[in-house]
Nucleic acid binder design. Sequence first.
DNA 1: AAGCTAATGTTTAGCTTGTCAACATTAAAA
DNA 2: TTTTAATGTTGACAAGCTAAACATTAGCTT
Lengths: 199, 199
Amino acid sequence: MKKKSYHHGNLEEALIKVGMKEAKATGSRNLGVTHLAKLVDVTPMAVYRHFPSGENLKAAISQQAREELARRMASAVAKETDVKRKFMATGREYIRFGLAEPGLFSVAFLDCSELPNREDNPSARGILHDTILDLCNEGLIEPKEVQAVAHFAWSIVHGFTMLAGSEDPYRPSARPGDIEDVLERAWLGVTQYSRDSKK
Amino acid sequence: MKKKSYHHGNLEEALIKVGMKEAKATGSRNLGVTHLAKLVDVTPMAVYRHFPSGENLKAAISQQAREELARRMASAVAKETDVKRKFMATGREYIRFGLAEPGLFSVAFLDCSELPNREDNPSARGILHDTILDLCNEGLIEPKEVQAVAHFAWSIVHGFTMLAGSEDPYRPSARPGDIEDVLERAWLGVTQYSRDSKK
DNA sequence: AAGCTAATGTTTAGCTTGTCAACATTAAAA
DNA sequence: TTTTAATGTTGACAAGCTAAACATTAGCTT
């Protein structure tokens, strides 16, 4: 039997934790106040002592999911030294995470317009940005391109992950070779570009 | 005053129509059975004579949104003859639509894993695919690359649109110049690629 | 250590939704 | 015209979110 102390100890943390578990299993479907409260063996109203509303709780879980993604990317990129390999590893891990943990990924980028508390997204974008900065230091791209390149690379891996993970009958396949193909093409868009190739 | 004939005439169509209007205005927030039924001045239960469940109604609206996107892309690409311009126009219109109609776009790609009835997605992907086939006919890419190129291009425009339309504080900006930049880089990834550039 | 106070949970209850079952109305077929 | 199938409505119930009022306890204050 469980100890039923009136106070839970650290409910906020527990809610996010169990929320992550649910997200991993079923995406955003079971992230409601009532459901999560039940899993932590607490009254739904207790949740409101820690989050202004259910949406805020979801936002907190979403944030956590984004940080998980960032951790994995950081870990993957840390194993590489060559700039190109770093670039590839960053994108590859983003895609891998999205496909290996579709629930977490969908929660991480849960229709942002409806979620509050989106101040800090240090995570994935930050790591990607660092990788691009390295490209700049190596002289592979110009300083003023950094921003555009980061957005370009992010768009590719994000789009590919979303589509490959969708139920669309014509979605991209995600065999390792196909992923490498996409990353290789992204690399070209990054390095082969110059202002002159415009128009 | 309104005529209150017991039968509505064409409720199914009316529901999807008003659903599109709501989607355009507020995304997926107000696409519930009760709300839409109210807007058409009908009892919630009437909806179930036309859709097995609320999710199916949402799916129908989502499909409609996807077709709207496809129509605009078809219209945009029809104005061009040059293959590169066709390619650019296709992607540009995809992005424009997503940013001009964020509500519709988010509903169009509403977390697919939770929606039924996703058999046919003829639309956007089909048009993009035709554009890529043209590239092939012009000898700009090899036939066996068509699939990969289509997925690559789709990933970029989809990812860029999602991110630029998000609330992320570091989201890509979507000024016309930035959009052209992304499309130009995508073009490089499409045309500069060869099996040899691997590894 | 006794007592106050704020933090944290609970109970109760109201409102909104989605959906089942049973019934009502009407358009279309026989 | 009568039967029948399609289409809407009413009523009811469960589930979810959350406001208000009340209960318990952790921790500081003295």
